[in-house]
Amino acid sequence: MYDGGKVVFGLALFVALCTSPLWLSVARGGGGAEAPPLQMPAPAAGKCVRDGEWMRNSHMELLNSWRDEVVREGKRSEQLADGRVIEKSLTKTCLGCHTDKTQFCDRCHDYVGVKPFCFDCHVETAGG
């Protein structure tokens, strides 16, 4: 290999840069951040449209399919397994129960470092 030293040094530098967040986190004491406490809706609000654990992992997929069904196919409502009929709406249905977006959606999104652009347009609360 020509210039072997330089190549190896370059590769090592690249790997170190790419993994730097991990090392920085370890240097700061490691262990990762505490899972944030999420404000759950009042029990009177009733059950979620899906199982809680499933929602935690897959709510974005549900919202994506709702989005396509409502906007593209005009199917605006859905009958749940327990017989309830709900409107497939982020603002009306989801945020109708989870009334405080900052204490529920944002906390977890911040924790996992994602920035969904749903809220660029979908307004969280009346007048907001």
């Binding site: 009306k92 652009f117 347009c121 979908h122 307004v123 969280e124 007048g127």
Partner: peptide
Amino acid sequence: VDPAYPPRA
């Protein structure tokens, strides 16, 4: 802003 209808980006 009327939250019943999302504005656009």
